[in-house]
Nucleic acid binder design. Structure first.
Lengths: 212, 212
DNA sequence: CCTCCTAGATAGTGATACTGTCCACGTAGA
DNA sequence: TCTACGTGGACAGTATCACTATCTAGGAGG
């Protein structure tokens, strides 16, 4: 199919498709002649994936690039997922490294959770530390691990559920795609659901409360 | 304290403080003379809050404005929370209204969850619908509610936990602040923890898997 | 043959969140 | 009293991001 058809089928403007091609987010099509390139279903699918990650997950274009690079990772599917996790993780909120004790607390949380398969240099260790650091600067005490425990338990449940639910028949890249889409979509959905649930549950405690 | 001192104490540049004052995110200080304004602890605190919401929660300045406006809401604490939830909710990903059946599915999910205290016009109903719509356009089938059920249960747990843990001694605005910070901080933390947990749990199933 | 589309290069746009400059003035320390 | 530095206020400038538009030359297809 031609670029205009690809655009029609996906709803993505031609200019944007060209941009994604330039950025290497879409593989080049089959160049029949210097003036005519043929695109196929793989492009349609990839474009759909890119739009979901951008529109639903707010993944920056730079993250998409890292994801594309990650998809070339050799090794086990587990290795592939680990590299993809780094690609999806935002770059740590604060530039600075933060106090080492905050990083230690992040590591302690991960160890407490029993997640001993997490790489020592996972980006998310820094992310967790950076978040604790920023929050700690506001609330004087760096929010002790006990407060985080329920969230650790939830994350563990969530991850088990999602890993278990991956379609075992897919190939390497199919699994990656499913994992990545699941991660960003359900992160968004969960955040929205949580706000809805909070609105509901605040009723019992605060509907009558006119305080102040 | 003077503006330079406020800046030092919070680490926020003077120019940024001026910007926040212009935007109405910070209340004006006590204008002793036309050339000298006195700021106090309330400004320090507010600035800390704003920075957390921006740096950790990625709340846009516009959302912060909505939040400030929301904090003036009359009525019960429950009403206050509801308006704040709308302020924190991102404006729906897609501009268009989407198919009505998607909106119906969003409403059905909320009803199934038993969250009957959620306002009919909550922004998050639209957000949920918009997300379902976008995902549905990619994966042909609009992901049936059963797949979402576990997330509904999690969100419910999360919300109960958070509402129950609010410090009951605080005043109206203190409660709002705690609720809002908790919401954005734990949303971020949970997302990070989930990626970490997924990396760990993928080991058991995929460490040996070289597929493809 | 003529019109439309394409690839590829490059430049421009709009939104967001600051950041920098300028000025006249006033405050505080010497 | 003198003076250097800090201030409020207005406004312009900047950086980044994610596109979007324009232009050129040329080939495809009726």
């Amino acid at each position: 199919m031609r670029i205009s058809e690809l655009s029609e089928q996906t709803g993505v403007p031609v200019a944007t498709i060209k941009y994604y091609l330039r950025e290497g987010l879409l593989p080049e099509g089959d160049k029949r002649t210097p003036r005519l390139t043929e695109y196929d279903e793989r492009h349609v699918r990839r474009l759909g994936l890119l739009r979901i990650l951008r529109d639903v997950g707010d993944v920056p274009v730079d993250g998409l690039k890292r994801l594309v690079a990650a998809s070339e990772t050799r090794g086990s599917v587990h290795d592939l997922f680990a590299v993809a996790a780094d690609a999806l993780a935002p770059t740590p909120p604060a530039a600075g490294p933060g106090r080492p004790e905050t990083r230690a607390m992040a590591d302690a949380i991960i160890q407490q959770a029993g997640w001993d398969r997490v790489r020592e240099d996972s980006v998310d260790r820094d992310n967790l530390a950076a978040t604790l650091e920023l929050v700690g600067a506001f609330e004087t005490h760096p929010r002790d691990p006990a407060e985080i425990a329920p969230y650790v338990a939830m994350a563990d449940q969530l991850a088990r559920h999602e890993i278990a639910n991956l379609d075992g028949r897919k190939d390497r890249l199919g699994l990656l795609e499913e994992m990545v889409v699941g991660q960003v979509v359900f992160a968004t959905v969960l955040t929205t659901l949580r706000r809805l649930a909070e609105e509901h549950h605040s009723h019992e405690r605060f509907a009558e409360d006119q305080r102040d």
